[in-house]
Design a protein around this nucleic acid. Sequence first.
DNA 1: CTGACGATTCACT
DNA 2: GTGAATCGTCAGC
Length: 222
Amino acid sequence: MELKRLYHNKISRQILCSDAAMLDASFYARNNILIIAEELLGKILVTRFENKLTAARITETEAYNGIVDKASHAYNGRRTNRTEIMYKPGGTAYVYLCYGIHHLFDVVTNVQNVPHAILIRAAEPVYGIETMLKRTGKTTLDNSLTKGPGNVSKALGITTKHTAASLNGKEIYIIDDNFQTYKESIIASPRIGVDYAAEDALLPYRFYIKGNPFVSGKNNLK
DNA sequence: CTGACGATTCACT
DNA sequence: GTGAATCGTCAGC
């Protein structure tokens, strides 16, 4: 099996800052969250905070399917100060604190009042690696830099203060640089850490690029 | 107001 | 494989 190692894939600043490449509202507003979660693989998540540009190609996502999904914060229509962000229109950032330590970044999808969200679980650095290393306190680049949702946010500088931010703004956005993610290299599997969700824990709502070293867990080769 | 806990990570055995 | 870290959120009183 061919291993997709994008490790050395660097992207120019010009492309990362191109408005034309930015995913727009129509991408996020769609109804089928599984399609969007799959299509986000291979897209590039870009952040620019205090003029520090960092970017990573998405390698792993998880869909949280709104009010019918027992794994979702918005299950059964739950509305709180925190989850209210999930009810915003597609193309909004939903960031929350997990275990008091980790800031997890989600992409809100669908239309207003339909609380769909896609967790970005892993990505492969393509720009601003020095900045990412500084943010994470690491000295060398390896897959731990952006493998796992807490690590992605940390490397890209995303925190809970960015929740509700538009993904069509200047600070956080996702671009399509026409990178080809081949269907046969995409795996769907159950989501991680959602045992509490009863039968919904078994749904194949996690998507990742087969064999990519920037994917959480150990068993990403099959 | 209080207590329980989490869409995790990392160090250690 | 096990356990600690660490705090905002949320249900319940």
